[in-house]
């Protein structure tokens, strides 16, 4: 075997190894969204973007933390809480339908007005968007630390088929594997 062929073989081997390493690191066809906001408008935007990506067959992960947790509360459910938890529970919106707007809240007049305009224009409500999200397999990952801080319990959250409870490590892993990550 000539020296040249040996060099070529070595080169191919090293290239193969590098391609394999790159393939392992390459992001999948995934979108990662972080929802920290508890505003109705931003929550709606999050779910619309998630559903748009799902229509493109992208896998979608939504990491929900802090104020974002309110959107996942089910007003029909109750959980046992300590005093602080009860206080937080009373002050936070009780469901997605009760979220305030980031702008034009107008002492509570804003949300019903926006909902009326959305209905007039056949836009889906936040509840309908969340139902679609469940149908399209969009995964919701709830931040356990935020739950702990705000005294929010699993038992008071909505029944969502693709929901689990995670920490920041899971979120970082998710956005590393994703093509894009947005944080609201």
């Amino acid at each position: 075997m000539s020296e040249e062929t040996m060099n070529q073989e070595e080169m191919i081997k090293s290239l193969m190894a590098r391609v394999e390493a790159l393939e392992e690191q390459a992001p999948g066809d995934k979108l990662c969204l972080g929802l920290m906001s508890g505003d109705l408008d931003k929550t709606i935007a999050t779910f619309i973007i998630a559903l748009g990506a799902a229509a493109y067959d992208m896998e979608v992960d939504i990491f929900v933390t802090f104020w974002g947790l309110s959107a996942l509360r089910d007003p029909k459910k109750h959980a046992k809480k300590d005093l602080l938890g009860k206080m937080f529970g009373a002050m936070l919106p009780k469901s997605a339908g009760k979220l305030p707007l980031s702008k034009m809240q107008m002492m509570g007049m804003g949300p019903p007005m926006i909902k009326m305009v959305m209905k007039m224009h056949n836009a889906k409500s936040i509840e309908e968007l969340m139902k679609d999200a469940a149908e399209f397999g969009i995964r919701i990952h709830v931040c356990t630390m935020a739950m702990e801080l705000m005294g929010i319990k699993k038992e008071e959250l909505i029944d969502y088929p693709h929901m689990d409870f995670v920490g920041v490590g899971a979120f970082v892993g998710m956005f590393q594997e994703s093509k894009q990550c947005f944080f609201m």
């Binding site: 559903l51 799902a54 959305m118 836009a123 889906k124």
Partner: peptide, 13 residues
């Protein structure tokens, strides 16, 4: 026709 964005895209999907 009854839905706004993202309704039509989801219905197509």
């Amino acid at each position: 026709r009854g839905t706004a964005c993202p309704g039509p895209l989801l219905d197509a999907k």
